[in-house]
Design a protein around this nucleic acid. Sequence first.
DNA 1: GCCGTTTTCGGCCCGACTGTTTTCAGTCG
Length: 563
Amino acid sequence: MDITNRFIAEKLNLMGQLLEIRGENVFKIRAFYRAADVIDRMGSPVEGLDETALSSISGIGKAIAAKIREIVKTGTFEELEEVRSGIPEPLIELLSLEGVGPKTVSTLWKKLNVQSIDDLEREARNHRIRALKGFGEKKEEGFMKAIAIHREQSTGRMTRAEADRVVGRVTPALHPGTFEVAGSYRRGKSSVGDIDIVLSESASSINPDLRRVADEIIDVGEKKTSLKVLGRRVDVRFSRPGQFGSMLLYLTGSKAFNIKLREIAIGKGYKLNEYGIEDRSRGGLREFATEEELFSFLGMDYVVPELREDWGEVERAVAHTLPELVTDREIRGDLHVHSSWTDGKLSLPELAQAGDEKGYEYLLCSDHSATLGISHGLDEKSLKSQAHEVELVNRASSCQIIHGIEVDIMADGSLGLESRALAELDLVIASVHSGFTQDRDVMTRRLISAIENENVDIIGHPTGRIMGRRQPVAIDMDRVIDRARETGTALECNASPHRLDLDDLHIREACLKGVRIAIGTDAHDPSEFGNIGYGLLICRRGWAGPGDVLNTLHRNELLEWAS
DNA sequence: GCCGTTTTCGGCCCGACTGTTTTCAGTCG
């Protein structure tokens, strides 16, 4: 059985939670959380690393390195099992309740023998909690409410499309130029937890407008207001215009990035917070209306939001060696669209026209192959007719249709169409659409045999994940990326907000190794062409430069690359 | 438990908000 980074991170995280409930040293606890976070965010598996290699990773020392080795060998570690044996397992679920942390759990457990959410509900209903020191009526009500929320929704994250709908509802209530959406939304993450907005107007002047667009007001304060909009949490933070830069920086995060920046400030004798920078010895607050001024004050280059993850960008900004990222100006076309020849809505002439309107040089028409029954896929014969129509349409349009296909990768790694048919096409995308539950080794070999096929140019949505619906397939991405580099095959960044596949970390790994990325919207409908922006954000988060992305090539360069 | 061109010991990001309190603990982001 493979030990994934996620699995290791979960064990370390669990250790942190258990130690919290036990009331251990907070810095020891933090060390476990930090190590878990570091492991979880690493692009390549740590399973094969020895203790020396592990402890050279920042945030992992000798002790945790040894525990990771133990997890790889046995699936757990001795100290974890020891701590776990003294604490009832359901206690941990209590931590997922809003407003309930380790101290609360610990007190409830020791004083009232509350071991589960059901226990807590019973005690709260019988008003036995208010009798405890430090607890009262409000706390009891809060617990009941938190339990209700917990049961109602195991709160999933939003897709970017959903986040855009929430933002689109809130921002008309705000005045242009007075606000910025911050948080993971601004960083371009593939999914978003809640929406954070920084606003340079005062609470009193704007709150009535916000009330109108909200389903519910959660909190109202002088410094921040929390709303529920379209069922999602929106936090609005008020800032004086003169302090807007530091507030925006703070609320954009990521948390790890903020901590790194504060450490840099400390190293220079300053204290950084959301109001500005204080001189630790002389006092006095220096304010920043823009983020650019703040970065400059700290001697750093401006770090775009997409890079703010503490993946090495802070050091690069200090050394003035930040990478050049791909931008929308360099995108010359969409490398994955469907037509009405199969399950798409637009005919080829309509596609070409839509491409024109987007200012594209080309669109890669990649309909499904016949093996995928549901979408009336193309066979060799219909591909020939389609090729003929493509030729006709291209004569009348400035946006050129590149004739391709999205061919199925079958369970055994073979392709859904004969090589003879594929060889006729300009570009071939190969994707997995079935048999997602194969084990890791089989799935990896399946993808690699598609990569090795001489006709395949791009692997479509390589992990197959669909947000909130389907987990990514088990796959050895290192091996896939290595083989893609050796064969000159590109990997897709599927820009559908439900997929965003590959995601940022894998894009980063691929680019580091010299594998090209193809951004494709997988559009079946004209409204989906705009999704290209989501894919672009993910690529930028993966540190992709213009040279890493196939869509920056001119049509003739692209066709040459594919041949 | 982790970390280090000022440190191998003594630090570890910082503030808002709530509910419980007469000055603070706990939780959250």
